[in-house]
Structure formats: C-alpha cells, structure tokens
Amino acid sequence: MPLDASTSDTSARPRTGRRRRLAAVGAAFCVLAAVAATGVALKHQERARAELLAPGDAAGGRWSADAERGDGVADEVRAGLKGEGTTDTSAPTRPEVADLAKAAPSPLPASDPLAAAPTGPRPTIGPLFYAGVPGGPDHQCTAAVVHSPRGNLLVTAAHCVYQGGFRTDLAFVPGYHDGLMPYGVWVPTRIDLDPRWTADRDPDHDVAFVQVRRPGAGKARIESTTAAEQIRFNPPPSRPTRLVGYPYDQERPISCQNATNPFSPTQLSLICPGFPSGTSGGPMLTDLDPNTGRGTVTGVLGGYDEGGDDTTSYSTYFGDDVAGLYRRATTA
C-alpha cells in the first residue's frame, strides 16, 4: 500500500491504511527536512502537488487524457531508471515457469512460512511510478495487465489513482526490476472509477481500471507486449490465492499464497504478513497456469482500511459493481 498523503506530507504520494502509518510518518519528516534544507517554501510544494491532480469527471468517475499528456512523465521515469526494452537479457520474456511450477501447482498451497517473500518479476505486473515528487519518480503502488477487447487495460486500487483528484503523473512499468524497464513505460489515457469512491472514498469501491499507451510506440497494445491476466467477477469468496506487489523501497516484487476469506459481503481478506507500502493495487491471482505463470485476477490489494495492516490484506469484492465498472472501462 502507498505512503500517506496527509496534509502534512507534501510529496503528493497516495494515501494508505494502517500498515503504512509509521513509514508515512518517516517519509513526511524526510520530505520536510529536504524542503528545509533546500529552502523551498512549503507553499511551492503545495502548488506542485495541486498541479499533479486533475478534476476530470469526478462525479462520473472518469478522467481522460489528451493525445500527448503523459509524454513528459514517461520521459522523467525513463531518465531516472537504467534501461528500456526487451534487450535486457536478465528479464524473462514470460514468467519464470519453473519457479511457478514448484510454488503454484493446482490448487495453490499456502506459503510456508506464511509470509510475503521475494519473487521473480512478471511481465503482466509492475509498479506505478509517480513523477513530479521530491527526489524524482518513485513507485508507490502496483498494477496488473488484465485482458480486455482493446488490449490496453490495467487494474489497480482506486486510492492509487485518485486522492481528491485524478493523478496525472502516473507511469506503469511492467516486469520492472533493478532499475530496468524490459517492457517499456506506459502512461494512462483514461481512468475509470466508481463515483462512490470519488465521492467519499467508499472502501467497497476501491478499484480502478486504467487504459494505457506507450509513448513513442504508436498504437502498440500492452497485451501484445506482456500478455495479460484474466479477470473474474463474482468469484467464490474462499479460493487459494497468490498476492503480488512491489514494496516501495524494493526493486523486485514480493508474493504470498493463502486462501481468501469473506470479510464482509463486499470485502475479501487474505492473511499473509509482510506486504508493506507500495503493494496497494497488487493483484490477487487464482488458477495460475504452471505453463505460463498467468492466472485470474479476483481482487486487488485495497478496500477496507485501504488494504489492511501488516498481517491481513483486503480487497473490494469483485461483484456486480466491479463487473459494471470493467464493462464501462472497456467501451467508448
């Protein structure tokens, strides 16, 4: 889950639930110290923060970008990282099949020990970088490519892309690891949320679908580059599940497996300790294919308390409301 963006934190990072409070306090002190050291007035930071937010159609839960918006964000993220393109031979062109065949047979066993642990990068999953913040772009959330008719759709948590306005400084880097961008940098062209999230941050609607493009790559579709996870609505509430996310201070993802359980009629819970800041929006995957490493998204880390605490993670249940949001996101 992302760091706290309270009024005392001028870094414009996404807000979080319980498990990020201590990290958020430390980050806020670091930001304030940096501001004091450089002599930059707080009001300038607040102005910069405001410029990262766009009202869009908050009442309708939609933001659309113009043709060139995001090019500068992509340039900033590229400049801050090491390299782009599939010439990176250390990055797999598909998930690490041998690792998944051992760790994720059908059905998925619970992790032993039951805790998040480092895992290999996957082409369909990556961090969301936020540009225009002190110290340069950093990743504060996670997203996943899901199948759609146009082949350009991500799913993440709503609190990763909307905090009092739609974030305009996002970039998705699928398969990211160690400063490398093996599948390029992708920026939003449209964000779809449930209006009940934009109205009052209703945890039962903490889901967002994001259409993306790759600047400089014409009409390239992200599914053609990375493949995609499937997505399922109204899944059984208790399923063997793998949760994947990128901690904000690490260069590779972590994962953990356990069965989900109904927390309420509109929320799922998953007991797997060790998911820190940055993992919000990470996919909950079921039915992993040992031959491809891909599975089916049945939730994203968020929802209750914007994701939970250091022991339990939550997700808005992917019921009829989320199915309707997906249909809206995949039509004109």
Rank of each mutant, 00 (worst) to 15 (best):
L108G: 04
G151F: 06
V145K: 07
E84V: 14
F166H: 00
D112G: 11
S111W: 06
R21E: 13
Q211A: 14
P95E: 06
R20F: 08
G293K: 09
G70Q: 08
R167L: 08
A67V: 11
K102G: 06
L243R: 09
T87P: 00
D88F: 10
C160F: 04
K82E: 06
S6E: 10
P195C: 00
P14C: 15
F29D: 10
P236Q: 14
A74G: 11
R196K: 15
T226R: 12
M284F: 15
G282R: 04
R213I: 07
L154Y: 12
P195K: 00
G303Y: 04
N258Y: 01
A65D: 06
H139L: 05
G85C: 08
P215G: 04
A36D: 13
D71M: 07
R327H: 12
G216D: 08
P123S: 09
P134R: 11
L22H: 12
P95D: 05
S111D: 13
Y162W: 15
P235W: 08
L301P: 00
P134Q: 06
G274K: 05
P237A: 12
R190C: 00
D192Q: 01
T312A: 05
L243C: 05
D192L: 01
P203N: 10
I191P: 00
S269M: 07
L288N: 03
P235S: 09
P237I: 01
P149H: 10
G120Y: 04
G80P: 00
S315G: 08
V187M: 11
S313Q: 13
D169G: 04
C160V: 05
A103N: 11
G164Y: 03
G70Y: 05
S255W: 09
L154C: 13
A48L: 09
D305M: 13
A117H: 14
R20N: 06
R69N: 03
Q250E: 15
L52R: 15
K219R: 14
E96F: 07
A131T: 11
T86L: 13
G175D: 09
A157G: 10
R122C: 01
V297K: 01
D169R: 02
G175Y: 12
P109W: 06
A104I: 00
H159R: 03
G39H: 12
H44S: 14
D88H: 10
P237H: 12
G274I: 04
T330L: 06
G80K: 05
V35L: 14
G303R: 02
V322Q: 12
G308T: 09
R15N: 15
G319L: 12
T292Y: 09
L268C: 03
G307T: 11
P235H: 03
L52M: 15
D71L: 09
P235L: 02
R232E: 14
A104M: 07
L3C: 08
L180I: 02
P107N: 01
L288Y: 01
A199Q: 14
A171H: 09
A171D: 03
C30K: 11
G184C: 13
T89S: 15
C141R: 07
D289I: 04
R214V: 02
T296K: 03
G72H: 07
G83Q: 11
P236F: 01
